[in-house]
Design a protein around this nucleic acid. Structure first.
Length: 790
DNA sequence: TTGGTCAGGGTTTTT
DNA sequence: CCCTGACCAA
C-alpha cells in the first residue's frame, strides 16, 4: 500500500519510540487488511480522500461500510486525527452505529470522535460555545415540538390573530419551512411572509424568535439556522471551524435540506474535503424539507467533484432487484444507477389481490404462519405499510392469531405525554425561569389551578418581569388569590424549592422519583383505569432508571432534549410492523407490502400537492420498500378499503403495472378467502381448509374464553373484538406509594449503590434516613436500598 | 374549574 | 372509525 509510510519493524532505529511505533504499525496493518474486503468502487470511494466526493450508494451496496472505512482510512494513514473529522448523520441511531463500527475497525482510537453526530447535536455543541454571539446564554434550552406549539399559540394570541383561521400548527409549519430553507425572519421573501395571517406572517415569525430569545430557548430549526447566523456574522469563528474540520463526511445526503446544505457549504468552503454519501433513489423526506436537488446538483455546487457509483448490491436476490430497478427507472429526476447482483434470481416478487383490507390482513397473517411453519424466523419478516392507519387491521389479526409482533416507530419515547410531563417537573425544578415547563405541569395532576389562575400568574409575572415560578411565590404573599388557590399554589412552589435543594445533595434519580411521587404525578396514573396507564407507569420507571447513567440532573436534561429513545427489545422472535419511512436502512429476508392501491400508495395527497415530484417521491418509497427484502417480497392490494371508517372501493396501484413482468408472479388469493369470508370467520366448519392452521386454533383458544363470550355469539361485531374486552395488564407499578410500610427497620445495615454501606436512622413510609459510613446522613428511597450483608 | 358533549379532521417523521 | 380540540353546563 502506497499509503503505508515507513512500515519499519519494531526495534529498528530509535529505541525511545519503540512501543508507540509498534502500536502504530499494528494500526496500519489493520487498516490495510480492512481495505481488502472492498470492491473497486467502494475502494475508490474510500481512497479518494482529497477534494469533494459524491458517493451514490444504491440500496444494499455497502454505504455505511464505505463511510466507516473512509474514516478509518483517514486516521490510519495519518491524514487526520479523530478530532479533525466532522461526520454528520441525521439520526442518533445512525451516529451510534457509525461510532460502533469505527470502533470495531480501528479500536479505541476511533472511540473519541468528538465531531461525529447528528446535524443537530453538532449544531448544539457549536452554539453552546458561542451562544453569546447569537444572543443566547450557553445553557439555553432546546424546545420540543409541543413546547414550540404552546409558544406559538401565545405569540398568535399576543398579535391578535384569530387562532381559528391561523392555527398554531400552520404557523409552526410555515416557520419550520423557512428555517429548513435557511431563512431567518428578515430573510423571508416579503410576499411569502405576507401570505400568512393577512400579512402578519413575518411579524409572527419575528415575535416568535423574540419570545424564544427571552426564554433563552431555541427550537430544532434554530440549531442549524443560528449556526449560519453565527458564521456569517463572525468570519473569524467560521474560519476556525473551517480550519478545524480537515475532512467532512455526510451520511444520507439526499435527505439534507437547504439549511443543512448551506451549513455544510460554509464549513467545506476552504478545504473542500467533503464526502457526501447518499442515494437519490431513496430520497423520501421531501415533505419535511429535504431537497433532492442537493444531491442532484452536487457536481455543480462542488466543482471538480469525483462521483462514485456503488451499484453492486449485496442484499437482494435477482428478481427483487430487477423489480425495484424496473420501478425506479420510471422516475425522471434521478442521477441514474443500475443495481446488479451476482446472487441467484431467487423467488419472484408476488402480487396478490384481496377483496378487502380485512381479507388482505388475513392473507398476510396466513402467509406469515406458513413461512413460520417452514422455520422462517419471525424476526426476519417485516410488514411495511404506507400509513400507520393501515396497522390497526393487521395488528388486530396478529393479536387474534397470537402471532407475536412489534411495532416500530409510533410516538417517540420522549414525545410521550408522561415523559414530557416528568421532564417538565425536572426542568421546572432545575430552572426557576423555565416558564414553559412550569406552565405544563402547574395543573397536572389536576390541582384546581386552571386557566384563570395561570392568567393571573402571567399578568403578575409580566408586570414585574418575573418568571412564573417566582411570580407564583410572590403572589402567594399577597391576598390577590383565593385562599384555596393560594394554599395549593404555595404548597407547589414550596415543593419546587425543596426539590431544588434536594438535587444539590441527593442522587438525582432518587430526587426525580421523589418529585414524581410527592407531586402526585405517579398517583395520577396509578388511579387511571385506562388501558395504557400501566404502560405509562412503566415508561416513567424506565425514565427514572435511565437517569442513573448520567452524572447529574443537568447532564441528563441536556442529553434528553436531543436524544432519547425507547429501549428497543431487539432480537426478539417477532414479526416487525412499520411504515415504509421507518424501514429505510433496514433489511429482512421477507418483506410484505400491503396496500398497494392508488390513492393510498401512491398517496392521493402527495399527488395533489406535489404533482409529478410527489409521484416520484412515492415511487422512491416503493423502491425503498422492495429493496428491504433479501429473499422475498410480497405485494398485495385490496379492492375495498375502509377509509376514515367508510368502505370505499379502490384500484390497484399504478406502481404494480410498472414492475417488470419477468420479475413478478401474480398469485391468486387462496380459495377460502372469498368475499365475505369474515362473516363466517368465527364459525369454524370442521372441514374447511383454513381452519386447521395453528393460527386458527390459537385464535380459538384466544377468543373463546374472552369475557365468557363463546365464539359466534357476537354476530356482526368487529371480527377482532378483542381490544375492547377486559385485559389483564402486566407490569409492576412504579414505586409503591408512600403509605406502604417499609421492609426496613431502624438500625438495620443496608447497602446503597451510590453511597455504599450505612445504617438506617429513620423510616418514613418508603423514605429512609440512612447514616452512610462514607457519605454521611442522607434521605433515600427504600427501592434504592438493599439489605446490607456486612 | 372541571368534565361532558359535539364537530371537524384525518400521510409519511427526525431533531 | 377514532382522536383532538372547542365550547358549554354544573
Amino acid at each position: 500500500m502506497q499509503n503505508r509510510p515507513h512500515a519499519q519493524p519494531a526495534g529498528d532505529g530509535a529505541p525511545a519510540s519503540s512501543i508507540a511505533a509498534r502500536a502504530m504499525g499494528a494500526l496500519r496493518r489493520d487498516a490495510a487488511a480492512y481495505l481488502e474486503g472492498l470492491n473497486p468502487e467502494q475502494r475508490r470511494a474510500v481512497e479518494t480522500t482529497e477534494g469533494p466526493v459524491l458517493v451514490l450508494a444504491g440500496a444494499g451496496t455497502g454505504k455505511t461500510r464505505v463511510l466507516t472505512t473512509r474514516i478509518a482510512h483517514l486516521i490510519a494513514t495519518n491524514r487526520a486525527r479523530p478530532f479533525d473529522i466532522l461526520a454528520v448523520t441525521f439520526t442518533n441511531k445512525a451516529a451510534r452505529e457509525m461510532k460502533h463500527r469505527i470502533g470495531a475497525l480501528i479500536g479505541p482510537a476511533g472511540e473519541g470522535m468528538p465531531w461525529l453526530g447528528t446535524f443537530h447535536a453538532i449544531g448544539t455543541k457549536i452554539l453552546r460555545r458561542h451562544a453569546e454571539l447569537v444572543g443566547l446564554k450557553s445553557d439555553f434550552t432546546i424546545l420540543g415540538t409541543d413546547d414550540q406549539l404552546r409558544l406559538m399559540k401565545q405569540v398568535i394570541a399576543d398579535q391578535n390573530v384569530d387562532e381559528k383561521r391561523w392555527p398554531a400548527r400552520a404557523l409552526s409549519h410555515a416557520i419550520d419551512g423557512w428555517k429548513n430553507r435557511g431563512l431567518g425572519p428578515e430573510q423571508v421573501p416579503p410576499g411569502e411572509a405576507a401570505s400568512f395571517a393577512f400579512g402578519k406572517g413575518g411579524t409572527l415569525y419575528t415575535a416568535y424568535q423574540a419570545r424564544l430569545a427571552t426564554l433563552n430557548a431555541v427550537d430544532f430549526g434554530d440549531l442549524l439556522l443560528l449556526c449560519l447566523k453565527l458564521w456569517r456574522e463572525n468570519p473569524d469563528v467560521l474560519a476556525n471551524y473551517q480550519d478545524r474540520f480537515r475532512y467532512i463526511l455526510v451520511d444520507e445526503y439526499q435527505d439534507t435540506n437547504v439549511a443543512q446544505y448551506l451549513w455544510l457549504r460554509l464549513l467545506a468552503q476552504s478545504r473542500k474535503n467533503i464526502a457526501c454519501v447518499g442515494d437519490d433513489d431513496q430520497s423520501i423526506y421531501g415533505w419535511r424539507g429535504a431537497e433532492v436537488d442537493n444531491i442532484l446538483r452536487f457536481e455543480h455546487d462542488f466543482p471538480g467533484a469525483v462521483v462514485v457509483r456503488l451499484e453492486r448490491n449485496y442484499r437482494s436476490t435477482g428478481h427483487i432487484l430487477a423489480a425495484a430497478s424496473g420501478l425506479i427507472a420510471k422516475n425522471e429526476s434521478r442521477l441514474g444507477k443500475t443495481l446488479r447482483t451476482d446472487d441467484e434470481p431467487g423467488e419472484r416478487v408476488t402480487v396478490t389481490g384481496a377483496w378487502d383490507s380485512e381479507e388482505e390482513a388475513r392473507m398476510l397473517a396466513e402467509s406469515i404462519e406458513s413461512l413460520q411453519a417452514k422455520q422462517h424466523p419471525l424476526s426476519e419478516i417485516v410488514v411495511l405499510v404506507r400509513i400507520s392507519a393501515q396497522m390497526r387491521e393487521i395488528e388486530d389479526r396478529f393479536v387474534q392469531l397470537g402471532l407475536p409482533y412489534r411495532v416500530i416507530g409510533g410516538p417517540r419515547f420522549y414525545e410521550r405525554a408522561e415523559i414530557r410531563d416528568a421532564l417538565a417537573y425536572l426542568r421546572a425544578t432545575m430552572n426557576v425561569s423555565d416558564d414553559l415547563a412550569f406552565e405544563r405541569i402547574v395543573n397536572t395532576p389536576k390541582r384546581g389551578l386552571g386557566d384563570a389562575t395561570l392568567q393571573q400568574l402571567h399578568t403578575y409575572g409580566r408586570a414585574n418581569r418575573l418568571p412564573l415560578r417566582i411570580a407564583a411565590e410572590r403572589l402567594c404573599e399577597t391576598d390577590e388569590l383565593k385562599p384555596r388557590v393560594r394554599s395549593t399554589l404555595r404548597a407547589l412552589t414550596e415543593s419546587f424549592s425543596r426539590w431544588a435543594r434536594l438535587v444539590e445533595s441527593q442522587p438525582h434519580s432518587e430526587v426525580a422519583q421523589m418529585i414524581l411521587e410527592e407531586s402526585g404525578y405517579t398517583e395520577m396514573w396509578q388511579k387511571d383505569r385506562s388501558a395504557d396507564a400501566a404502560g405509562r407507569l412503566e415508561n416513567l420507571k424506565e425514565f427514572v432508571r435511565s437517569m442513573e447513567e448520567f452524572p447529574d440532573m443537568a447532564a441528563f436534561l441536556e442529553h434528553v432534549s436531543l436524544v432519547m429513545e425507547a429501549s428497543e427489545t431487539e432480537g426478539a422472535e417477532r414479526v416487525s410492523l412499520m411504515t415504509l419511512h421507518a424501514a429505510k436502512g433496514l433489511e429482512f429476508d421477507t418483506v410484505f407490502l400491503p396496500g398497494w392501491e392508488d390513492g393510498l400508495f401512491p398517496s392521493q395527497r402527495a399527488l395533489d400537492e406535489s404533482g409529478r415530484a410527489g409521484l416520484e417521491e412515492e415511487r422512491r418509497l416503493a423502491h425503498v420498500g422492495l429493496t428491504r427484502a433479501r429473499k422475498r417480497a410480497k405485494l398485495s392490494f385490496a379492492v375495498n378499503r375502509r377509509i376514515h371508517g367508510l368502505w370505499s372501493s379502490t384500484i390497484p396501484s399504478r406502481f404494480i403495472d410498472e414492475l417488470p413482468e419477468t420479475a413478478v408472479d401474480v398469485v391468486e388469493a387462496p380459495a377460502h378467502f372469498s368475499a365475505g369470508a369474515s362473516r363466517f370467520d368465527r364459525n369454524p366448519t370442521p372441514f374447511g381448509s383454513s381452519y386447521g392452521t395453528p393460527g386458527w386454533q390459537r385464535a380459538q383458544a384466544n377468543t373463546a374464553p374472552q369475557g365468557g363470550r363463546g365464539f359466534g355469539s357476537a354476530p356482526g361485531g368487529r371480527s377482532g373484538g378483542f381490544s375492547g374486552g377486559p385485559r389483564q395488564i402486566e407490569g409492576e407499578l412504579i414505586a409503591k406509594s408512600t403509605g406502604a410500610p417499609s421492609a426496613f427497620e431502624m438500625g438495620q445495615r443496608v447497602f446503597h449503590t451510590k453511597f455504599g454501606p450505612g445504617t438506617i436512622a429513620g423510616v418514613d413510609g418508603n423514605k429512609l434516613t440512612v447514616d452512610f459510613d462514607k457519605a454521611g446522613r442522607k434521605m433515600v428511597l427504600d427501592s434504592f436500598i438493599q439489605a446490607g450483608s456486612s
